[in-house]
Design a protein around this nucleic acid. Structure first.
Lengths: 208, 208
DNA sequence: GACATAAGCTAACGCCCGTAAGTTGACGAG
DNA sequence: CTCGTCAACTTACGGGCGTTAGCTTATGTC
């Protein structure tokens, strides 16, 4: 599990590579089934094959690593959703279901990652961490914007009932998806029928 | 913060009282704004005013304390929902909104508790904890049953569209509520309009 | 008042953690 | 070839944690 190789030092100017390796190590620790508590400076260092203090030049503290992880995963999620929209039939309904199901699939395939992306960066007080509120607020905007766009397309096509507040409806739709995704990520066996996802989407998108 | 009083020993046969005090201390630690990591055997002991090893006669380990906390809070939640249903007008629609809003209020008033009730007991492997799957599966059934009952009443009264699967619809409704409640509990400032809750309820209950 | 025992305490072990301070060694410029 | 410096290392300190083993003391009974 832990690398025993002495690890080849990076070339000059390539010190930044280690930053990527640290993030990947943190991801690996999560995927191995641990929760965020399994990601400590020391465990990450062990995984990468470096000494713990060698992390400092790249990250101020453990929350910073987590933030980087989450930012990376949010980008991946946005990409996945985008691809889903493009690969689907180009009508609103197909795209909506494609995007929503891609979202749910992402969460199902990486439960630990998902838990951290939405809620794992929570900290008692803002003071004792290097993460700012701005960091947190900018998370996930891309993915959400895409979702809202697809929902808007449905309204334009007349598939979904028009409402006075597309943004609010998009939030509601996302909250529904999130509820399901999070619950799946947190519970070993999810109760309820298999098509809960479709029901949520249909109801929250106000599909006709 | 920490009790300095030497704490009067419990009477003979009343040793069980300490169990309740431990649970209350854990709750207090949570409410003070810490996350579940703040609830350690030692911190709980400090809060109660006892020595750490004195916990062992009452709880096998930290997860056991958390389980007891969650069970207690689930009971409270069920009570709150029940009261909401009784105090509301006795028609389905009023009761539905009363129960759902009571749920959301509970989560808003006790974010830390809510986070632990739904997801905080997650552990990497079942092996290294004294919590069983049965413990987890029985959590929250009362509250859910109540919700499903009220939704059923709406269907009977013809307020909500009849579907072939009341249970599935109830799960979907709860998932929506949970998505909102959880997100509020995890984020400092929740985006979206103020009436997202009502939108979720209306859409997921299929109100006419 | 003696005494059995429930209720809780003290002390100590080993582990893992974050982090500070100083050190080594390879690379690349001059 | 020399030498600065970047990348990473070693060592070490202090602190919190869970847990074990054995001790103290109040309480209620006889």
């Amino acid at each position: 599990m832990t690398n025993t190789e002495p690890r080849r030092r990076n070339r000059r100017g390539e010190g930044g590579k280690l930053r990527e390796e640290i993030i990947e190590a943190a991801l690996a620790l999560l995927d191995e089934g641990g929760d965020e508590r399994a990601v400590t400076l020391r465990s990450v260092a062990r995984k990468v094959g470096i000494a713990a203090p060698s992390i400092y030049p790249h990250f101020a503290d453990q929350p910073s690593i987590m933030l980087a992880v989450v930012q990376g995963e949010m980008a991946k999620l946005a990409t996945v959703l985008h691809e889903a929209a493009q690969n689907a039939e180009q009508d609103g309904r197909s795209q909506l279901f494609a995007v929503c199901n891609a979202y749910l699939d992402f969460a199902r395939e990486h439960p630990q990652r998902y838990r951290i992306m939405f809620g794992g960066l929570w900290t008692p007080s803002v003071e004792d961490t290097s993460i700012t509120d701005a960091d947190l607020e900018s998370l996930g905007v891309d993915a959400f914007t895409l979702l809202a766009g697809v929902l808007g397309k449905c309204v334009e096509e007349g598939i979904a009932h028009r409402s006075d507040d597309l943004y609010g409806d998009s939030v509601a739709l996302w909250l529904g998806l999130h509820g399901l995704a999070h619950q799946r990520a947190v519970v070993r066996k999810m109760p309820g029928p298999d098509d809960v996802g479709d029901r949520l989407i249909t109801a929250l998108a106000h599909l006709k």
